[in-house]
Nucleic acid binder design. Structure first.
Length: 576
RNA sequence: GGGCCUGUAGCUCAAUUGGUUAGAGCAGAGCGCUCAUAACGCUUUGGUUGGGGGUUCGAGUCCCUCCGGGCCUACCA
């Protein structure tokens, strides 16, 4: 994959959950690298469909809505709006940002469940669940609290005691109570649920995973673990006794015995990838064929390359459950071709914490600094191989050095020198010589590496290569020294400056996947509309001809001072 | 308890899958330049690759063991 094959690429990012604003760890774990990849693929001439959506169902959404006093549907609509705005703020270039609560997803989820049932892949299981009379609802295990029978901890949860880490069953708890209302008026009730018979598809999924080439070890090792651990891949419940969700139906027919139940959030969320693409078609006044050519291999999707991005916590659903749903439907849906998974980003020696207000959240980040600053640091430190860590010192150093000094100052020194000697017009005269050829040779090598890394989704390596391409400009300028040459040979100085101005234009194009706003600023300053990918550097670096007008841009990036850094570190340290 | 990932320069990371003398960036030191956001360039200090043992002509890379960090998970390999 060089990126020049004019492929069709379907890209999905794991769906952010609806209950609140996501922190930088969530952002860098899927949406941001997916965006850089999508932007690169578009720029290099591929047809891209980049899909994301909010994941809106489940108990946490209901509880969050109850807390604000809103109806859950209203709450989700509002938070979807908030998250969509933040996505825009970070310049996430989704073709569509959908909602798992959409009518499209209701129908698609019910349809696929119906198909699975027809193929004998759904079983009905009776199980006992705790019902709270005061809350008027069944309680998920983790929303039941009580005293741990092992260690006596009085705030143990029904799924696990956080004190002694012992796994628990809700019925093990002594004096159980609802974590929502505190009520002890609980009752164990028999309730019937649907299970997806993943075990029946185990061998097929296993072979499918085995047949994949070059997936991150994080992806395959998690998948293999779940496939082969203990008794192998287990069946999983796909329904819940809740009000908020996709009502259980068998296609467009009622499902006897399942009245009043909804599908479980992990079942309908990945299906939203498909539904959101349909939502995209609807929103653009297109027919079903427009989205089906991305998803149905019998309707044009056979040449699509489908790439998913997600944090490691999402890997089991994407390697096992969702493929089981797709395969089990017996319909020709597009299966994922490559699963890029990420480790976690920690915050200054610990984890990001919503409850403790520890770490930086997306809205706060944009209040402090422009999105490019965050994008650059996060993408150049994306946790590809192991968990990585955000520190303010590191953030400050990267932003100041890479963005302000290496790139920003390059644009500044070139444009200001030209303005003072030749005016705000690309100077004419002189010719490129060996010095320019040498830089072009170096950039050509690095550009090829950059393209390879992007095609292979090695984001960190790509950022390092891009930075080296910026550095090459400063090296060139230093050795060509137009400020000295100008005194003896203005013609030669003109050629040097013309070449350097063309480098700024080149940087605008190459930097766009990572820092789109700065790319805009550079392109605007260089007064160019054509941003076609530089397949030929000789052409790309003569694109700005002598006589072409430009303007000196404002400083592309301001530096982060030590004082500002310390202030931010204190502000986001969280409650003691 | 089990499984997986991870430990490389003060810091953040590489190392073409077992092949010369382990490389970059930042930080540090020295020099140069003066167009530029006190920016840029060049040179340079710095590593017993967590410890120990083993396989091999050859180990950062494979095996065993111990120590540390992380993730997943439950009595099952």
């Amino acid at each position: 994959m060089t990126g020049f094959d004019m492929a069709r690429i379907l890209i999905t990012s794991a769906l952010p959950y609806i209950n609140g604003i996501k922190h930088l760890g969530n952002l860098v774990g899927s949406q941001l690298p997916a965006d850089a990849y999508a932007r690169f693929m578009r720029q290099t001439g591929n047809e891209v469909m980049f899909i994301c959506a909010t994941d809106e169902h489940g108990t946490p959404a209901e509880l969050a809505a109850a807390k604000t006093g809103e109806a859950v549907a209203d709450y989700c609509a509002r938070l979807h709006g908030v998250q969509a705005e933040l996505a825009k703020g970070f310049r996430l270039s989704f073709d569509h940002y959908g909602r798992s609560s959409s009518a499209r997803n209701h129908r698609m989820t019910q349809h696929l469940a119906g198909r699975l049932a027809e193929n004998g892949l759904i079983s009905e299981v009776s199980e006992k669940q705790v019902y709270s009379h005061a809350d008027g609802r069944f309680l998920p295990d983790r929303y039941i609290e009580g005293t741990c029978p092992n260690c006596g901890y009085t705030r143990a949860r029904g799924d696990q005691c956080e004190e002694c880490t012992k796994q628990l069953d809700p019925t093990d708890l002594i004096e159980p109570r609802s974590a929502i209302s505190g009520s002890t008026d609980l009752e164990v009730r028999e309730t019937k649920h649907l299970y997806l018979r993943q075990s029946a598809l185990k061998d097929r999924i296993d072979q499918w995973i085995d047949s994949q080439q070059g997936w991150p070890i994080l992806t395959t090792s998690i998948a293999k673990k779940w496939l082969h651990d203990g008794d192998g891949l287990q069946d999983r419940g796909i329904t819940r006794d809740l009000d908020w969700g996709v009502p259980v139906r068998k296609g467009d027919q009622p499902w006897p015995g399942m009245e009043g139940k909804v599908f479980y959030v992990w079942f309908d969320a990945p299906i939203e990838y498909i539904s959101a693409t349909a939502e995209w078609a609807d929103a653009n006044g297109l027919d079903d064929a427009a989205w089906e050519r991305w998803w149905r291999t019998d309707k044009g999707a056979d040449d699509v390359r489908y790439v998913q991005f997600m944090g490691k916590d999402n890997v089991p659903f994407h390697t096992l459950s969702f493929p089981a749903t797709i395969m089990g439907s017996g319909e020709p849906w597009k299966l994922v071709d490559y699963i890029k998974s990420f480790n976690y980003l920690n915050y200054d020696g610990g984890q990001f914490s919503t409850s403790q207000g520890r770490g930086v959240f997306m809205d706060q980040a944009l209040d402090i600094l422009p999105s490019d600053y965050w994008r650059w640091w996060l993408l150049s430190h994306v946790p590809e191989n192991s968990d990585s860590e955000f520190t303010w010192e590191n953030f400050q150093a990267s932003v100041n050095k890479d963005l302000a000094d290496v790139l920003g100052n390059f644009a500044s020194r070139v444009t200001k020198f030209c303005r003072s000697k030749f005016g705000e017009v690309v100077p004419e005269g002189g010719a490129y010589g060996p010095a320019e050829q040498a830089v072009m040779a170096e950039i050509a090598t690095r550009l090829a590496a950059y393209e390879t890394h992007m095609a292979e989704i090695e984001i960190r390596k790509a950022t390092a290569e891009l930075r080296a391409i910026w550095v090459a400009g400063n090296e060139y300028l230093q050795s060509a020294a137009p400020w000295a040459v100008f005194k003896e040979d203005p013609e030669r100085a003109a050629a040097i400056v013309r070449f350097a101005l063309n480098l700024i234009r080149l940087y605008a194009i190459l930097s766009r996947p990572f820092i789109p706003d700065a790319a805009d600023a550079m392109a605007l300053a260089m007064n160019v509309a054509d941003e076609s990918w530089p397949h030929d550097l000789d052409d790309a670096l003569t694109a700005l001809p002598g006589g072409h007008g430009f303007s000196v841009p404002e400083n592309l990036f301001d530096k982060i001072t030590d004082e500002a850094r310390d202030e931010m570190a204190a502000r986001f340290a969280g409650k003691a």
